[in-house]
């Protein structure tokens, strides 16, 4: 054993070290803390207010553009890079996060996402993902963002932001979907209409609602990895965005013919979308 310092200098050293240590770090009681800082509460309302305060951006050809990001859990740096890159595009009206901002529904993971979201000049709107809803994630999401189902009415379009995480909530609210769709609607939800959480009967009900309401399109996360997926059912386009890891995101444009065009981006987006 070495005698490093003699009393009383040793006491000064150890107290100084302790002070630096404590001040430099947070003191969390539990991994399952739920207290959301006021700055990060009610983000959906704050960003909707910001969106509605702006005039819609529509180019000379009548193109309306927004961005989508899927599953940024566990990669806050990539999430930040994607949001920063989208902010460099002056034609993007808003950003939709298609769920799974967290891996474990823990507060610190939510805070990483919220930190990026509040720094974005372009309004950011979210749907809850299945990972966001585990542990105490439902309570944190509600505090941090707000309602689980809501509608954005903007530039003549309707965006139905829908919670369809069947396993975590025990039910999928198809009635809400039915009551909030029309022919100008794009649905945004975490889980896509494929064999995953929903059984064949539920998928039939879901697709029938979309068909009957003649929606413009349906956007999702959850199943995207490095690759995205696009398909059409009953002439309705369905798209699963690639996971954000690797700074992936997509730019969605609705043209004057109400056709949806999707440009997939990794890190940077090509110039032609600007």
């Amino acid at each position: 054993m070495n005698t490093l310092l003699k009393y009383p200098l040793g006491y000064v050293l150890i107290i100084s070290l302790c002070s630096i240590f404590i001040n430099a770090c947070s003191m969390e009681s539990s991994p399952w803390d739920v207290n959301v800082d006021a700055e990060y509460q009610d983000l959906t309302r704050k960003h909707l207010d910001a969106l509605y305060a702006r005039d819609p951006i529509v180019n000379d050809d009548g193109d309306f553009t927004f961005a989508i990001v899927g599953d940024p859990q566990g990669t806050p740096a990539d999430f930040k890079a994607a949001i920063d890159e989208i902010n460099r595009h002056d034609n993007v009206n808003f950003i939709l996060i298609l769920g799974d901002m967290t891996d474990y529904g823990l507060l610190h993971e939510y805070e990483w996402a919220a930190q990026v979201i509040v720094e974005s000049s372009v309004p950011v709107l979210t749907v809850i993902g299945n990972h966001d809803a585990i542990s105490h994630g439902k309570d944190i999401y509600t505090d941090m963002f707000g309602p689980l189902d809501y509608v954005i009415e903007y530039a003549g379009f309707r965006f139905a932001m829908w919670n369809n995480n069947l396993y975590e909530f025990g039910v999928t609210n198809f009635e809400w979907l039915k009551n909030n769709l029309d022919e100008n609607t794009i649905v945004a939800s975490h889980v896509p209409p494929v064999q995953d959480m929903h059984n064949a009967e539920q998928l039939d009900e879901w697709l029938a609602i979309n068909r009957d309401k003649q929606i413009l399109g349906s956007l999702h996360g959850h199943r995207g990895g490095k690759n995205s997926f696009y398909w059409e059912t009953d002439e309705t386009p369905y798209y699963v965005v690639a996971r954000n890891r690797g700074e992936r995101f997509a730019i969605v444009t609705i043209d004057s013919e109400r056709e949806i065009n999707i440009l997939e981006c990794t890190g940077k987006c090509p110039e032609e979308v600007e």
């Binding site: 240590f21 404590i22 430099a24 770090c25 947070s26 003191m27 969390e28 991994p31 566990g74 990669t75 806050p76 740096a77 990539d78 930040k80 890079a81 891996d103 474990y104 823990l106 610190h108 993971e109 805070e111 990483w112 930190q115 890891r245």
Partner: peptide, 23 residues
């Protein structure tokens, strides 16, 4: 455990407001 991957593998360009870890 959930803080390790972002801190070790995915931290470049990202400084979290909530400092990593707990005392």
């Amino acid at each position: 455990d959930s803080e390790v991957p972002p801190l070790v593998f995915h931290s470049e360009g990202f400084k979290p407001i909530n400092q990593y870890g707990s005392v």
